[in-house]
C-alpha cells in the first residue's frame, strides 16, 4: 500500500541516493503518476520526487539548441519567450495539454517518460529532433527521442535512470513547424490524434521535413518513408494534401473508448495537411 518517499534537494543527493530498484518511480508533476497509483495500476515501493532540484526546472539557450530541464512545466513552455521565439510549435503543443491546473504542474519530462502515445508534447519534440539526456547509477547517456519510446508506459530507460533534460533544435529562419490536435472538446481533452510537422524550405521546394504522429500507433512515431517522398517537392496545397494521404496510408490506428480507428485515420489526413500548410507559411514568413 504505502511507499517510501524521498525528495532530494540536489542532483548529487539524488544520484547518491538513487534506488536501483524495480519499483522506484520518479515523481515530477504527478499528474500521471499519482493517478496511476490511486487507480492501483502501479504500486511503487520508492517514489523519488524531482521537484526540489532547481537545475531540472530551467530552460537554457545553447546556441543552435535549447535545453529544456525535465521538470519544466507545460505552463513554463507555453510562456517562455525563448520557446515562443525558437520553438513555437512546442509552446503551442504544451499550451494544449489539459487545463491550466494540469499545465501548471505537469512537466515535459513526465509527458515523455509516461510514454503515452497521445502525449501532446511528444510530436513537437520529435520534429524538433529532440534528444533525451539521461542520468543514472551507471552514468549518463543521450538518446534521440525517436528511439526513446517503446510502447504505452514503457521507454528505453533502465532501472535507476532518469531524464535530466531534453535538447531540441531551434527553428531557424526558412524553417517552420506546427502542432495540430484533435480532441473531443475544446479544453481538457486527451488527443484523439495529434501531429506535428517541421519543414525547411529552399525557394519553393521542401528541402527537409519531419512529421510526427500521435495516437495512431503504440507510441508517438515519425514517418520517415513519407518524409522522404516529400523532400524536394515544390510546395503547394496539393502536396500538403498528398502528405496527409500518405500519412494516413502509413498508419493503422485502433478503436478504443476515445475514438474509432476509422475516425483517427480520417483526421490524421486533415491534421497533417493543416500542419504542413501552417509550417510552410511560417517558413515563408521567416525568410
Amino acid at each position: 500500500m504505502g511507499f517510501h518517499y524521498n525528495a532530494p534537494a540536489s542532483m548529487s543527493e539524488l544520484l547518491s541516493g538513487i534506488k536501483n530498484a524495480d519499483n522506484c518511480y520518479f515523481l515530477a508533476g504527478g499528474t500521471d503518476l499519482v493517478v496511476k497509483i490511486k487507480e492501483g495500476l502501479i504500486a511503487p515501493e520508492f517514489v523519488v520526487d524531482l521537484g526540489k532540484i532547481k537545475e531540472l526546472r530551467e530552460i537554457a539557450d545553447a546556441g543552435l539548441v535549447i535545453i529544456i530541464g525535465a521538470t519544466v512545466t507545460h505552463s513554463q513552455l507555453q510562456k517562455s519567450p525563448l520557446i515562443k521565439k525558437y520553438a513555437a510549435v512546442l509552446a503551442s503543443a504544451a499550451g494544449q495539454v489539459g487545463s491550466p491546473q494540469i499545465r501548471n504542474v505537469g512537466t515535459v519530462g513526465g509527458n515523455i517518460c509516461n510514454a503515452s502515445p497521445v502525449a501532446d508534447t511528444s510530436p513537437a519534440l520529435l520534429v524538433l529532433d529532440g534528444v533525451v539526456e539521461v542520468k543514472g547509477v551507471n552514468g549518463n547517456r543521450n538518446i534521440p527521442l525517436k528511439d526513446f519510446f517503446v510502447r504505452p508506459a514503457v521507454t528505453v530507460l533502465e532501472k535507476g535512470e532518469f531524464v535530466t533534460s531534453i535538447y531540441i533544435k531551434k527553428v531557424q529562419p526558412g524553417e517552420g513547424a506546427s502542432f495540430q490536435k484533435i480532441g473531443k472538446r475544446k479544453a481538457l481533452a486527451i488527443s484523439v490524434t495529434n501531429a506535428a510537422v517541421w519543414l525547411k524550405k529552399d525557394g519553393d521546394k521542401i528541402a527537409d521535413i519531419r512529421i510526427a504522429l500521435g495516437a495512431v500507433a503504440a507510441k508517438t512515431i515519425r514517418i520517415p518513408a513519407v518524409e522522404d517522398q516529400l523532400k524536394g517537392l515544390v510546395f503547394d496545397q496539393s502536396v500538403a494534401s498528398k502528405a496527409g494521404e500518405l500519412a494516413k496510408a502509413s498508419v493503422k490506428p485502433i478503436t478504443d473508448l476515445r475514438s474509432t480507428a476509422d475516425y483517427r485515420a480520417d483526421v490524421v489526413d486533415v491534421i497533417v495537411e493543416q500542419a504542413m500548410c501552417e509550417a510552410w507559411a511560417q517558413a515563408k514568413g521567416g525568410n
Partner: peptide, 16 residues
C-alpha cells in the same frame, strides 16, 4: 459502465 470518470465521460467545459 466503462466510462466512470470525467476522463472518459466528456461534459462541456467553459470553452465549449
Amino acid at each position: 459502465v466503462v466510462t466512470p470518470s470525467f476522463a472518459s465521460y466528456m461534459i462541456p467545459t467553459a470553452l465549449d
